[in-house]
Structure formats: C-alpha cells, structure tokens
Design a protein around this nucleic acid. Sequence first.
DNA 1: CCCCTCTTTGAGAATGGTTCCCATGTCAAC
DNA 2: GTTGACATGGGAACCATTCTCAAAGAGGGG
Lengths: 138, 138
Amino acid sequence: MTLRMTRQRAAVTELLDDIDDFRSAQQLHELLRGRGDAVGLATVYRTMQALADAGEVDVLRSADGESRYRRCRERGHHHHLVCRSCGATVELAADVVERWARQVGADYGFADIDHTAELTGICSACAARQRSAAEAAR
Amino acid sequence: MTLRMTRQRAAVTELLDDIDDFRSAQQLHELLRGRGDAVGLATVYRTMQALADAGEVDVLRSADGESRYRRCRERGHHHHLVCRSCGATVELAADVVERWARQVGADYGFADIDHTAELTGICSACAARQRSAAEAAR
DNA sequence: CCCCTCTTTGAGAATGGTTCCCATGTCAAC
DNA sequence: GTTGACATGGGAACCATTCTCAAAGAGGGG
Ligand SMILES: [Zn+2]
Ligand SMILES: [Zn+2]
Ligand SMILES: [Zn+2]
Ligand SMILES: [Zn+2]
C-alpha cells in the first residue's frame, strides 16, 4: 500500500518540474535517457498512470491517440488551452462550463455528470512566426 | 475524387440509419456481418474515416482509446451528452461553450481556436435500473 | 547495520485497435 | 461492351500500451 520512493520515481517527478507542456510517456522516457536518468519505458508508463490516478498529473489524448501528461500548477479541476504549434499550455478555470454541464445534466435527467472541455489554438508567438515566414516566402 | 457508390458503402450508410449510439468500427463490422451484409473490416475503417472527414459522422474516442462513430441528426457543429451505462446520446447546442471558447482565445491572444466539450452521465432509465438492482440485493 | 518481505523494476513478449499493401474486383463514363 | 480509375479485403505491419516474471532494492523490525 505504501508507495516506495525509488530512483526512478524521483527522476520522473524531477523531470516533470522542468517541463511545461503535455508530453507522452515515450517522450518522457527519451528525455530521462537524455539526462542520464535511465528508466524503463514500462516504468514510465506505470508511474504516469499512478500519478494520473492520484490526480497529480493531467492526461490529454492527442489526435493520434497518444496520452500526454502534464503536472499542472492548479491541483483541482480545470481545463486547458493548448497551442497546436508549440504546445504552450494555459490552465483555465471555467465556471461557465461547470455550470453548463450541471444544467444540461439536470435538463435531461442525467445523474453523475462528468465532462471534458479543451481548447486548442495558435498562440501569438507562433502566429507571429508564421506571419514572418509567409512574408519571407513572398 | 468522385466517391463511388458501392454495395459496401450503401450497407454502411443503411446500417447507420438504424443505429442511435456511438459505435466502434469493429462493432459496425460485426453488425454488418449479422445482417448478411459482409464488409471487410478495413473497408469499414476506410468508410467511417471518409464519412468523418466529410462531416457526415461524429467521432468520439472512448476511454479505452477506441474511436466510436455516430451519424447525428444535426449536421452542423454540436456537442454530446452520453450515458456511460447504455450509450444513449443527446445532441447539444451549446452557445455558452462557443462563446467561452472565443472569449478565452481572445483573452490569451490565441488564434484559430478549436474546442471539444463532451458530457457523460447516467441516464434516468439506467439510474432507475441501478436503484432497483440495489434494492433486490438488499 | 542486517535480514526478510514485499514492492518495484525492466526487457521482451503479448495485445489490440488501426493502417498499409497489393492483387483482384467493380463502378461508371464514353 | 471496353477501359481505367477507384474500391475492396485478407493478412501483414504498425505502434502505443500492457503484461510477464525473474531479478533488484526499499525499508521496517530486529
Ligand atoms: Zn505556439
Ligand atoms: Zn470543468
Ligand atoms: Zn443509460
Ligand atoms: Zn462547440
């Protein structure tokens, strides 16, 4: 029952301190290897799953079906706005959405409502980069 | 470029007429086989992908990573409320969410905002069924 | 410190949904 | 009909994730 502190788990949580985007288990595995903290891929998967179950990381499924993980500042429930180009991520409190979910559940007689709501877009830095690239090609 | 009408594509679109829940490609394949309309699994995948690209079906990824498809009444953009127990589905117009997405995009300087927002819950029929099952076990 | 026990690890195999390959079938334009 | 581009399907390939199980190691009680 006691979660033991191992070199591997320490390496993963340290890595998460230095990362601000959603990353897949495979990317984390590669990053760990790059730092010299070799950790088995299966262990990365297990650790991220445990952290997700404990609510310490958020999980997002990318379009290609990969799970990506991120340790957010906000521990409680929230949503995300992610740049499709560079991955920059903003954490969002969204009372409007919480109210909408509850209201819709009540309207249709559904109990135990759960919801997901995620935004993607192009951040201003990436938009600027794209504009100047387009100009250079002119 | 021209989409040809084949026996297989006809069988799939006919099947979709008779279904009101989100179903996986494999489930659709099995259902077609059950009707006597044998269609290759690869073809079901290709057809659903094409229909999704054309906006004729909506795609939802279940928790276990399977893509599930549904031909909705509403052709345009909308969201869903799905029963986790029986799969019953309600289509939702959600202006609140659309406004929220636009507003957040503007607030953080993100362009080309896209969003997903899906609700799950237990429909009243399933809730009643669960209540009487719990009572019988008492 | 040293055991002893029980958790954790990791390499490779297994799984399972989805896509690819390509020889063969078939729509539809002329 | 003839023809050629498009579609089909069975099985192999792909790939993220999970499983297996023997070996390593955390950590509490002596
Ligand atoms: Zn960006
Ligand atoms: Zn929320
Ligand atoms: Zn239900
Ligand atoms: Zn919407």
